[in-house]
């Protein structure tokens, strides 16, 4: 279970977020600049909250700026908005980079149907394929939580639907908390078990039916 209760001063407002995620998909829904990515970055350790606490199962990720776990030890799978694939490595090397073992690399290549791309470089594959590689790469470390930052925003409708399908399948197999940031209502409805709406740094819980 992922537990988050943090405060952080951003340039125009105070970010205040408190929520828990079990093995479910929770959507962080809100307009650009509302603090969504900052929440993900705080969980991953790329930035620090001012105060608060973040923990994953029994491990404390953040308690104060002095008492926190380094990024490398947080066991967080992070899919960035622009994927941030390693451009100088093949798909296989990208996934192997942080992989738990070689078996998991092969498993993910198969699971996400990208084994035929294994020896290609990121610039040689399409947007939807990149997205799946980024997902495989994030999962290869066997993370305790998966964070996705608008992972489908640059894809066309058809590819999006295909990716939703892959993500829903993964959710069933991996059973870890998934936190997905989006500003797309349809996407939130299709993927989320629960929806947290965020505006100017304040969170509000919404049932999917309310959309």
């Amino acid at each position: 279970m992922l537990f988050v209760s943090i405060q952080k001063k951003l340039s125009h407002f105070q970010l205040q977020a408190a929520f828990q995620i079990k093995s479910e998909t929770v959507i962080l829904f809100g307009p650009s600049g509302s603090g969504k990515t900052t929440i993900l970055n705080c969980i991953a350790g790329l930035t620090d909250p001012d105060t608060g606490e973040i923990s994953l199962d029994d491990t404390i990720l953040f308690k104060s700026k002095k008492n926190k776990l380094p990024i490398q030890k947080r066991q967080v799978g992070y899919v960035f908005q622009d994927y941030a694939l390693f451009p100088h490595m093949t798909v296989r090397k990208n996934i192997e980079y942080g992989a738990y073992d070689s078996l998991v690399t092969q498993q993910l290549l198969n699971l996400l149907r990208i084994h035929h791309l294994a020896d290609k470089y990121p610039r040689q594959i399409s947007g939807g394929e990149k997205q799946r590689v980024a997902l495989a790469r994030a999962l290869a470390t066997k993370p305790g939580v998966l964070l996705l930052d608008e992972p489908f925003s640059s894809l066309d409708e058809e590819t999006k639907n295909e990716c939703y399908h892959h993500l829903n399948r993964l959710k069933k197999e991996w059973k870890i908390p998934i936190l997905l940031v989006t500003h797309d209502k349809q996407e939130a409805k299709k993927l989320g078990d629960r929806i947290l709406s965020i505006r100017e740094g304040k969170l509000k819980s919404l049932p999917p039916e309310a959309f």
Binding site: I71, A84, L85, P87, G98
Partner: peptide, 13 residues
């Protein structure tokens, strides 16, 4: 993109 380095860090490097 600095996120490329950040991605590597989140992968335990």
């Amino acid at each position: 993109d600095p996120q490329i380095e950040q991605a590597a860090l989140t992968m335990g490097a």
